[in-house]
Design a protein around this nucleic acid. Structure first.
Length: 259
DNA sequence: ATGCCGGGTACGACCCGA
């Protein structure tokens, strides 16, 4: 099973690139973030034409997440529980059946949180608390659970080109890292770091020639329950996507699993 | 760099991202 996450930065602007990548790679399940589209405007027929079932959780202009799957969905969850007043579309989860039983794949677009002095930063921290509570419930099920997406979080100084540039940013500061560490301490494994110690950036800013300078950061992650980590065969960062025409500023990250 | 690019909305700028 090949499961991938990708922040595409707008489905309308990225449709040709996403379609070409799916045709080339044929992943089984893909989580997309920042579709920036209402559900009714998402080009689901394009993906259905490629053999995918499509579930979306969109909103106008900003955010929005989607799941594409060659397997049928047994169940779909839209939205992160814990705050009925939160209208930002940042989580969608599918449940699937394989020969070895059920598994869940959750696709998230974790809030950026900048600027730190604004209300956006406490929103990020509260969102991470809600996420950790959600994950606790999922872990209690003891089935393979893949939590993947744009976490807007740099796990360590080794995950960015220059820690001094990023330290203090909402993506790389103590309060954010503490919440991420809680997620790991609950029992969720960083799939990429389970396979390599090498740098593996997933985002390069459009500005400042970041791609040309390889001034990247690793903020797109697959976090695995023990039952998913036990079945992890490999991780691949689709770095070449950043060099395609009309690229997203993020690239896809894929995990391969034996289920 | 309180904004270099690029996407959104909407058609002229302004909001947003990381």
């Amino acid at each position: 099973m090949r499961i991938a996450t990708w922040n595409i930065n707008g489905i309308k602007a990225r449709l040709d690139v996403v379609k070409a990548w799916l045709e080339q790679e044929q992943p089984d399940i893909v989580g997309l973030q920042e579709i920036k589209s209402l559900d009714e405007n998402f080009p689901r027929e394009v993906f259905e034409g490629l053999g995918y079932n499509v579930e979306t959780h969109g909103q106008k202009s900003f955010n929005g997440v989607a799941l594409l799957s060659k397997l049928p969905f047994d169940e779909v969850v839209r939205g992160l529980p814990g705050d009925s007043a939160d209208e930002q579309a940042r989580l969608i989860e599918g449940t699937f059946s394989s020969e070895s039983g059920s598994f869940r794949v959750c696709c998230i677009y974790l809030p950026n949180g900048n600027p730190v002095e604004s209300e956006k930063f406490p929103y990020k921290l509260k969102w991470m608390d809600r996420l950790n509570a959600f994950v606790e419930d999922r872990l209690a099920e003891e089935i393979p659970f893949v939590l993947m997406g744009d976490f807007n979080l740099i796990p360590t100084g080794h995950d960015c080109h220059d820690p001094n540039v990023w330290w203090g940013d909402a993506l790389f500061r103590p309060e954010s890292l503490e919440k991420f560490r809680t997620l790991q301490n609950l029992g969720m494994t960083d799939a990429l770091r389970a396979t390599t110690d090498a740098p593996a950036y997933t985002f390069w800013d459009f500005q400042s020639g970041a791609w040309r300078r390889d001034a990247g950061i690793r903020i797109d992650h697959l976090m695995l329950s023990p039952e998913a980590a036990d079945r992890l065969d490999g991780v691949r960062v689709h770095r070449d996507l950043r060099g395609w025409d009309k690229p997203s500023d993020h690239v896809a990250v894929e995990g391969q699993f034996s289920f």
